[in-house]
Amino acid sequence: MNVLIIGGGGREHCLAWKISKSPLLDKIYAIPGNAGIAGIAECIDINTSKDNFTEIIKFVKSKGIDLTVVGPETPLVDGIVDYFNKEDLKIFGPNKQASAIEGSKVFTKEFMQRNNIPTPPGVIFGKTNYKEAIDYIKERKKFPLVIKADGLAAGKGVVITGSEEQAIEAVKDCFVRDRFGISGDKVIIEDFLGGYEVSVLCLCDGKKIIPMTPAQDYKRIFDNDKGKNTGGMGSYSPVPMINDKTYMKILNDIVFATYNAILKENITYKGVLYAGIMMSEGEPYLLEYNCRLGDPETQVILPRLKDDLLPLLMECAEGNLSKKELKWD
């Protein structure tokens, strides 16, 4: 089987390494790849922007690629899966409609509220409601507050603000300074929940969902959980504070409930559904969803997976996952 991996980070290197262990594999290609991946795969320098999807499809056809695996979120949100589906080419990842679960925090917040899935209380404001957003902050007596830009922001669109002044500046970054471009045209002003976060990644085939082992990453840029959020400063798995009972509560109350709601709303979701969970006073709350494997979580989850990853990815793409659970070290 010939496999193409799209992306060029540590997550994609780990994917290439894990896929390379499969007896089903003939050859791996990566677009664009990196120096580490080059030791496992043939790296091809093709731009992965939306305007270049047709070039990627030409490459896939020329090399007889059996499965394309998308690492980063931007091509998924831009609809690369839809392009492949039109050409009847196998690809691992959700389509554009389903990828909105990461592409728009407003979409996800409204989805969670509509389906009664536990999530911190939040109010949505658009750019035209800038004054109302500032007034809302000034009326608040309790901080911290969380300001979330609606669209993709490379893991930097969520700001935990400890004061009225900081919250106003975070809204100005979106609505006045245009720091995040159109991704900041809407914001969610959300209640802050204390506790600890855990990442729960699941494989989905459009009908079934299989959870992976949980992981925890370090988001803040400085030691002792200080400073702004990043895309991730490291990760570990297993997570010692998550026992089986807690994990099942997370799955039943949030993850499985979400997937059932996705099916109920006639959304076809294949690929990875990645829940960012906050455990606060023993209860799980959904902070955000991502539509792809986490980075850096992938680098600590996949090495623990005993199963052959490649057929699992293909089964997700084809809509026929055969396993009910995965095996872990």
Rank of each mutant, 00 (worst) to 15 (best):
N2L: 11
I5R: 07
I6F: 01
G7P: 01
G9C: 13
E12H: 13
W17S: 15
K18Q: 04
K21V: 02
K21N: 02
S22K: 04
P23D: 07
P23A: 05
L25D: 06
D26H: 10
K27P: 00
I31L: 07
G33H: 01
A35D: 14
I37K: 02
I37M: 13
E42I: 06
D45E: 14
N47G: 07
N47Q: 06
N47A: 05
N47P: 03
D51G: 08
I57N: 11
K63P: 00
P72D: 06
P72L: 02
E73H: 00
D78T: 06
G79Q: 06
I80P: 09
V81R: 07
Y83G: 05
N85S: 13
K90Y: 12
K90G: 01
I91V: 12
G93L: 10
P94A: 14
K96N: 12
K96T: 08
A98E: 02
G103C: 05
G103Y: 06
S104L: 14
K105F: 04
K105V: 08
F107C: 09
K109Y: 09
E110P: 00
F111N: 01
N116P: 02
I117E: 03
G126L: 11
G126S: 15
Y130P: 00
E132F: 15
A133Y: 00
I134P: 00
I137N: 04
R140A: 08
I147S: 03
D150N: 15
G155S: 05
V159E: 03
I160Y: 05
I160M: 03
A167H: 14
I168V: 09
A170Q: 03
A170N: 03
V171S: 12
V171D: 01
V171Q: 09
C174F: 09
C174P: 11
V176A: 05
D178H: 12
R179G: 08
R179Y: 09
R179S: 15
I182L: 15
S183H: 12
D185Y: 11
D185S: 14
K186H: 13
V187Y: 03
L193Y: 10
G195D: 14
G195H: 09
E197N: 04
E197R: 03
C204W: 04
D205L: 13
K208A: 05
K208Y: 07
P211I: 06
P214F: 00
A215P: 03
Q216G: 02
R220T: 08
I221S: 15
N224L: 13
D225S: 14
K228Y: 03
G231F: 07
G234E: 08
Y236D: 01
S237T: 13
P238Y: 12
P238E: 14
M241F: 13
I242C: 12
I242V: 10
T246H: 00
N252P: 00
V255W: 00
F256E: 05
A257C: 00
A257P: 00
N260R: 15
N260K: 15
N260V: 13
K264R: 11
I267R: 10
I267V: 14
T268Q: 14
K270S: 14
G271T: 12
Y274T: 04
Y274C: 08
G276D: 15
G282F: 14
E283G: 04
Y285S: 07
L286S: 01
E288D: 07
Y289E: 09
Y289N: 04
N290H: 09
D295E: 15
D295V: 04
V300H: 08
I301Q: 01
L302M: 15
P303G: 08
P303H: 12
R304F: 02
M314V: 07
E315L: 05
A317Y: 07
S322K: 15
K327G: 13
